[in-house]
Design a protein around this nucleic acid. Structure first.
Length: 436
DNA sequence: TCTGGGGTCCTAGGACCC
DNA sequence: TCTGGGGTCCTAGGACCC
């Protein structure tokens, strides 16, 4: 048994604030007719993304299929997700929190951490009172409820906000930590997933209290840094700083697509990847950013991941360049006879274009492509995202258009890929268009 | 929980160098 | 020729999060 758990009420006062059923609540706040009714978002995906407490009461759970929901709760109101509205309300949420302290870490669209340390005196209120007032402001101004945890560390504050949902406020002062950890399964805290949880249980650690009672040396010997940090935080010792700095916007862009059934046809899988590349590049162009590095990932039917990273000789957001560059990488990664169920592209180390003229004249050509892509993006904005696309991803589009997706490519489509190789030689992209 | 799409962070191990 | 020990950088993959 190592040193006792840290004493003192709140060496630091950290809040974790969590919007209750955030997406569904946003819908109810916007449309009062929906209040008090079972509201579910996620229509576009066919599964429940978020559900109001009225829907939860009827037994609706996350990721439940819509068909099942209709059986369970015929009066359910099922809406497509509207991320623009949610982001807007999210921003207002964070702004309200910032009235109380500038030290706010935006963590996800519906939750944040806030450091109140030192603010009791200026406010003439205890930390708990400040939290209550903040909670009140949020509900009055946004029209729905939030759950709050108050503790000395982020991990404990997060436990607190989950403790009593919805509309709860749970303070965990250091001297009471053991009461909360006593019967709490070891898999519950933020950052302890199934792998770590089952390993800890093999060592005889079943509750969080079991865990914090182990020696520091023991934890250091058997577990990596992130788990050691959770150990400290659960004991009331803050070691995870709030990330106040707003993250560099779109430091990376990823596009993943799962297809059913899984496929072992390299042409089909590569076409899916090309589709990812096109939409990732389009997004990057929308933000006026170029990638210095990219990676691709293939997910097999057994949920194994195989990936590779490529450093670019020059930053780009041109899909045709990446498709050329990544074809050999893809061929390397792709194993014959293995079934794949998803492809992913990541554009990383994004930066603003460097517009300096270069000494070797290649910028003229780049400028040409830049204008070409501007035109393409215009057409896409006007007529729809998939009106213009590369020959290389044609197969992928074919498959999604005729909803019966199959994992095998009909033989007669082969010529498309001959076109693709000739394009590669000449260095000019070919487009296939469905515009009249 | 038989599995959606988008993220972050950490680590082990190889390559290369002195 | 063989044999160390270290350092740094890079990358693939794991684990976890919402």
């Amino acid at each position: 048994m190592s040193a006792p758990i840290a004493l003192g009420k709140f060496p630091r006062a950290i809040l974790h604030i969590d919007g209750d059923a955030f997406f569904a609540s946003c819908e109810q706040a916007r449309n009062p007719e929906l209040r008090g009714k079972p509201v579910i978002t996620g229509k576009e995906r066919g599964i429940a993304a978020s559900m109001s407490y009225e829907a939860k009461a009827k037994g609706v759970t996350r990721a439940m299929r819509l068909s099942e929901i209709k059986k369970l709760c015929p009066e359910a109101i099922i809406l497509p997700s509207d991320y623009e509205t949610y982001s807007l309300l999210s921003k207002r949420f964070f702004d309200i929190v910032r009235r109380y302290t500038p030290d706010v870490e935006e963590y996800g669209i519906d939750e944040c951490f806030a450091d109140l340390t030192g603010w009791q005196r200026p406010f003439h209120m205890s930390y708990t009172k400040i939290a209550e007032k903040l909670q009140d402001d949020l509900t009055k101004e946004l029209g729905f409820t939030f759950s709050i945890g108050l503790a000395s560390t982020k991990v404990l504050a997060k436990l607190g906000s989950k403790w009593n949902k919805p509309n709860g406020l749970t303070a965990i002062p250091n001297r009471k930590i053991h009461l909360y950890l006593e019967n709490l399964p070891i898999g519950k805290p933020w950052g302890i997933g199934p792998q770590t949880s089952s390993l800890l249980q093999k060592y005889g650690v079943h509750t969080c209290l079991d865990f914090v009672r182990r020696d520091k040396e023991w934890v250091q010997k058997y577990f990596p840094k992130p788990i050691q940090e959770i150990w400290s935080e659960l004991r009331g010792e803050s070691v995870m700083p709030l990330q106040i700095e707003p993250r560099a916007d779109h430091y990376s862009i990823q596009k993943m697509k799962t297809f059913t059934p899984p496929s072992n046809d390299p042409r089909f899988v590569f076409a899916q990847l090309c589709k990812n590349i096109e939409s990732a590049c389009m997004k990057a162009r929308g933000y006026k950013l170029e990638a210095k590095k990219v990676y691709i990932l293939l997910r097999t039917q057994n949920y194994e991941h195989h990936s590779t990273e490529v450093k670019l000789s020059r930053p780009t957001n041109f899909a045709h360049e990446l498709i050329d560059l990544l074809k050999p990488e893809f061929d390397n990664l792709f194993k014959k006879g293995v079934l794949y169920r998803a492809t992913m592209i990541g554009l990383i180390e994004l930066q603003e274009p460097n517009l300096q003229p270069d000494l070797f004249g290649s910028s003229l050509k780049i400028d040409g492509f830049r204008r070409l892509y501007e035109k393409i993006d215009e057409v896409r904005a006007k007529y729809g995202k998939h009106t213009i696309h590369f020959g290389a991803s044609f197969l992928a589009h074919q498959f999604t258009q005729h909803s019966g997706e199959r994992g095998r490519v009909p033989e007669r489509k082969n010529h498309l890929f001959k076109g693709e190789t000739s394009r590669k030689r000449v260095g000019i992209p070919t487009f296939s268009t469905e515009l009249d």
